[in-house]
Amino acid sequence: MTVMRVARSEWTKIRSVASTAWTLSLAVVVTLALGMLISALSRRESGSMDPRARLSFDPTLVAFAGMTLGQLAMIVFGVLVVSSEYSTGMIRTSLAAVPRRGVFLASKIAVATALALVVGMATSFAAFFLGQAMLGPLGTSLGEPGVLRAVVGGGLYMTLIAVFSMGIATMLRSPLLSLGILMPFFFLISNILGNVSATKKVGRFLPDQAGSRIMEVVPRAADDTPYGPWGGLGIMVLWVVAALAGGYAVLRRRDA
């Protein structure tokens, strides 16, 4: 019962600040717009595609191209939900109202995750349909094998990115520090580690590399990835669980 009260109070918190609407709508708009753009460009380039490229062309994944940027807005959402408690000093009021820190953190994460899931899932489906519309004859449909899994997976991926950011922000407490680590990590470092051959084997176990596997329908050429789509998402879930556990450990131990 206490948990429901606290969850309700966290819902009031999250819906009463403008940053929630801003970050989430930015995630939607960027993911959709960029996905449509890349899909439209792919269609135009399709004539000059060589047969091998045509074989490994994945119309589902192309529709999700906007997520590489859109996920950054989800990161900002996840970070701000948690770290605004610290940057405003409100954490003391929050913990005086809810002294059981596990209940406080669980309620906050649960409410923010539920919201991220709704937005992430809607974005993923919208990105898929808009992308296929742009691709025209190159497109696929939800009925094709693996496509529905990829679209649902895209929604889960966006949600998990946000939750991972919440865990990291709980550990680091500062919004600037959290964003300063997460943004370059997901935008640059992870991509570099995943594409340089020397670090590829390690890089593909990073949360975004492993998690984004679920959005692929057409297998890559000469693929030796040691996990499947759900295995990859499982690896990402482990990262998220670790980040949340770390956040809880810090919150429980430290003075507020």
Binding site: K13, S16, V17, A18, T88, M90, R92, A96
Partner: peptide, 13 residues
């Protein structure tokens, strides 16, 4: 308890 009056999220009413 009132510890710090400014410890309120400025964007919230």
């Amino acid at each position: 308890a009132l510890l710090d009056a400014k410890a309120v999220h400025g964007g919230r009413t």
